[in-house]
Simulated scan of single mutants.
Amino acid sequence: MPPNLKTVDRLTITFLVDNTIEWMTKLPPGFTQELQQHINQPGHGVYDEEKKVPILDFDNFCCGAHGFAALIETFVEGEEASHLTLFDTGPDSQSLVRNIRAMATPIEKIERVITSHWHSDHTSGLLSFLELWRAKHEPTGQTGLACIVDVHPNRPILRGIAPGPHYDKVLCALPPDPTFEEIEKLGGVLEKHAEGHVVSGDTIWVSGEIPRVTEYELGILGGMRWVAGGESGESGKWISDGLIMDERYAAIDVAGKGLVIFSSCSHAGIVNVVKDAINVFARPIYMVIGGLHLAGPEFGPRIPMTVEFLSKTLRPAPTFILPMHCSGFQAKIALEKAFGEGCVPAGAGHKVDIVGHRADEKHLFSPVY
């Protein structure tokens, strides 16, 4: 039986952290450039009274950073309010909070943060976000407010990278993810979920463990994890951890369109992610968003199979693909060739408005692959 996920009538996405900024490429209807948003944003820059034009403030535009964060707003017709959810928090203490300020994000209305997995390019902005969230509420005198932080319970001590060709010697470690204690100290209310669940007024599905069913999506080569020594006195050590089994995706069902999938790093493989979402919901895929983890020579051989599945094998094919973060230049070229304008060069500062149509439900086909 599929989860009790509500179909939404409107979905708005604002990308707050991504590797890329893109001001000039023509975007499809429903997509808004950062530049255009700032022109219409009160208080951004100064207005030249003599020349009758606003002067942009480049000090308050988004910056790119190696990571991902998206603000998701879901709305169901007939319900009193929408729900604001933050999916991932970027790689550092600066990029997310800077871009939140640049985009005039109503941070005080964010109810929940979802972390896709324990990698610091997706979690390192969490603590600075919670500090800013708390600071926004303190002047109001409101008490009892809390921001839920939705995480996988299996947090590693440390993760490292072992380069090829043998992928067995750790070259460096990623910065440690925020600890449970640090999150709670800053007022985050922890929810630890290893299983799939619905959140944000039942408008967002957060997956559990993603089944690995393809032959070619084998995780991140050289992914390593530090484990502590045992009680018998043996020392800690690095072990192989390329599958990143704590990774989760998010899905939203938009009326008359289908599923919008957020897979911010796709260590499980985006084909595995899409197949799981279809198996869970039996709904067509409207949009795929996030890092597809196809950058670098070791992932190159996966690109043709991935593009073939998304554009030809899967029917109906997704209307839009937004390859971001770790997708890589070659993957973007291949997807643009297959999807044309349906492959959108999204980046930090872009906004996407998706309006559902209940009457169009009868025209949707059950997906097959």
Rank of each mutant, 00 (worst) to 15 (best):
I157F: 10
I303A: 01
A65F: 02
L130S: 03
F129R: 08
F320Q: 12
S128N: 11
E217L: 01
D57P: 04
K6A: 11
E336L: 03
N40M: 10
A135H: 02
L130V: 03
L190A: 09
F15H: 11
G67T: 09
H193Q: 13
I354E: 07
E34I: 08
Q94G: 06
P163L: 00
V46G: 04
M324Q: 15
G160Q: 05
I239D: 03
Y167V: 04
S366E: 09
G144A: 05
V271H: 06
I55N: 09
F61K: 08
F339Q: 10
M245N: 12
K169G: 00
L259F: 02
T214E: 07
F87Y: 15
G347E: 02
R101P: 00
S93N: 14
A135W: 01
G342P: 08
E108D: 13
D48C: 11
P106M: 05
F339P: 06
R358W: 04
R10P: 00
V274Q: 08
H267F: 12
E138A: 09
W238K: 06
R159D: 00
L171V: 02
E181R: 08
T74L: 02
S207R: 12
P318N: 09
E209V: 14
G223P: 09
G300H: 11
M24K: 15
C147E: 06
G356L: 05
G229I: 04
D360R: 14
T20E: 12
E184N: 08
G230P: 03
D241R: 05
M1N: 11
S311I: 02
I13R: 14
E50C: 02
D18V: 01
